[in-house]
Structures are given as structure tokens and as C-alpha cells.
């Protein structure tokens, strides 16, 4: 998969500039180039065709509207990918099957302190976690990973980008990509295990999430 190199890069930046100047054909070519990949990202985060289609359409609407704000400092794909992921996260929150507590409705006190807690929905305790449920749980936890880990897990493990491509896209070293990939996978599996272990514990609303943020890159 070539995302940011050489000839494609030149053509792409040219296309983007044309699209920024209102050339709809150029925008259409960008859509053709990235529709399937962004759809794939949406599908991985949402797990069904209809939602993925809604979100990839919404993503491109946002991309279209925001195009003039793109300044070529990151690759167009990275920029578009992030918009897509955010559309999916928004979509999950709005259509979360009525389970998730909105993070925007945290308590407000006179001291101004607001403690937002990540809502966590659990299947009924007496249900066996079937494969499809497990897959949905994986998608959900994937979407809840810290962004700097989630992006690498998605782009490397699900979208198949190489370490070199990721290093270039994210402007970090290949070693850091690998280290974050490891941590992302680890954290994801820890979250999934936590969810599975606590299935009998009822709805959980005050879950501490370890970000490992202060740990140095190895």
C-alpha cells in the first residue's frame, strides 16, 4: 500500500490543491482513491455495512467541507483517516444502542470540578460471550483505546500499512511504531479481558483506564 511516496504524492497534492480550488472532478478522484480504505476503517470500528457506509459518507462530507483547512503538513490520508475515525467515534456515541452514558453530562459542582467517567456496557451475565459479541466487544474497546495507540493498531494490524509508512505518516521512528503497536495490542487485550472478567459484575461506570502514558518508548 503506497500512502505517501513519490509520484503518487505529487499527484495527490496536485489533486488536493485542485479540489481545494473547487474542482469537483479532483475531489471525486480523491474519493475514488480513498473510499474503500476509509470504508474499511469505518467497518472495523463499527462492524456492519450500513453504519460503515453512513460514516464513510459523513467522513467525506466533512473532508469536503474542511478541505480548505488542510495545509499539507501531514499526508492527506492521515488527515482523512483521522476525520473518519472521529466520525465513527461520534457515531458510536450517538448510536450506542442506548447503553453508554454521555461523557458530556458529567456532574458540575460549585468548585467547577467535572469528573467524566468512561461508560462501560456489559452483556447480561448469564449470556455466553458468543463470537459475534466478542467481535463487537473488540471493536468497542478498540474505539476506546487512546488515540496514539489505536491509530497504530488499526493502521498496522487492520489496514496493513508497513512500519516505514507508519513512521513516515506519524512522524515517529519505526522503533516507536513497534513499541506503540505492542502497547496498543496489550492494552486492548487487557481491556477485553477486564470486560470479560467483569461480565457478571453488572454495569460498570467507574472504570480506571491505564494509559501507560508516562512510560518511555522502548
Amino acid at each position: 500500500m503506497n500512502v505517501n511516496h513519490d509520484v503518487n504524492d505529487v499527484k495527490e497534492s496536485h489533486l488536493v490543491k485542485q479540489a481545494q480550488n473547487g474542482d469537483e472532478d479532483a475531489f471525486s478522484l480523491l474519493v475514488e482513491r480513498y473510499a474503500t480504505r476509509l470504508y474499511g476503517v469505518c467497518f472495523h470500528l463499527l462492524g456492519n455495512r450500513e453504519d460503515a457506509e453512513d460514516c464513510v459518507q459523513e467522513s467525506f462530507i466533512k473532508i469536503y467541507r474542511s478541505l480548505t483547512g488542510y495545509r499539507f503538513r501531514s499526508s492527506f490520508y492521515t488527515w482523512a483517516y483521522r476525520i473518519s475515525v472521529n466520525v465513527c467515534l461520534d457515531y458510536r456515541r450517538k448510536n450506542n444502542r442506548g447503553k453508554t452514558v454521555s461523557l458530556d453530562e458529567g456532574p458540575e459542582t460549585s468548585s467547577g470540578q467535572l469528573f467524566y467517567q468512561v461508560a462501560d456496557e456489559l452483556p447480561l451475565p448469564d449470556q455466553l460471550l458468543e463470537r459475534s459479541e466478542l467481535t463487537e466487544l473488540v471493536r468497542e474497546e478498540l474505539s476506546l483505546l487512546p488515540a496514539y495507540l489505536r491509530d497504530i493498531v488499526i493502521l498496522r494490524d487492520l489496514e496493513g500499512l508497513s512500519y516505514a509508512e507508519l513512521a513516515g505518516l506519524l512522524k515517529i521512528s519505526e522503533g516507536t511504531v513497534k513499541s506503540r503497536l505492542f502497547r496498543g495490542r496489550k492494552q486492548l487485550m487487557e481491556r477485553i479481558r477486564y470486560r470479560e472478567q467483569n461480565r457478571s459484575g453488572g454495569r460498570q461506570t467507574d472504570r480506571e483506564i491505564t494509559t501507560e502514558g508516562s512510560e518511555g518508548e522502548k
Binding site: L103, Y116, L144
Partner: peptide, 22 residues
């Protein structure tokens, strides 16, 4: 513990910028 989720929930723009670990 809630910063990442909070930022994600507030606006995609902020999310994009939290690429570094808090």
C-alpha cells in the same frame, strides 16, 4: 484517567491532537 475519553467525546479536532500520550 478520563482525559482521553473526554477529549474524544468533545470534539474530533482535539482527538487528532492528542496523538502524544498524555
Amino acid at each position: 484517567a478520563a482525559i482521553q475519553g473526554h477529549l474524544n467525546s468533545m470534539d474530533p479536532v482535539l482527538y487528532g491532537m492528542m496523538f502524544n500520550a498524555p
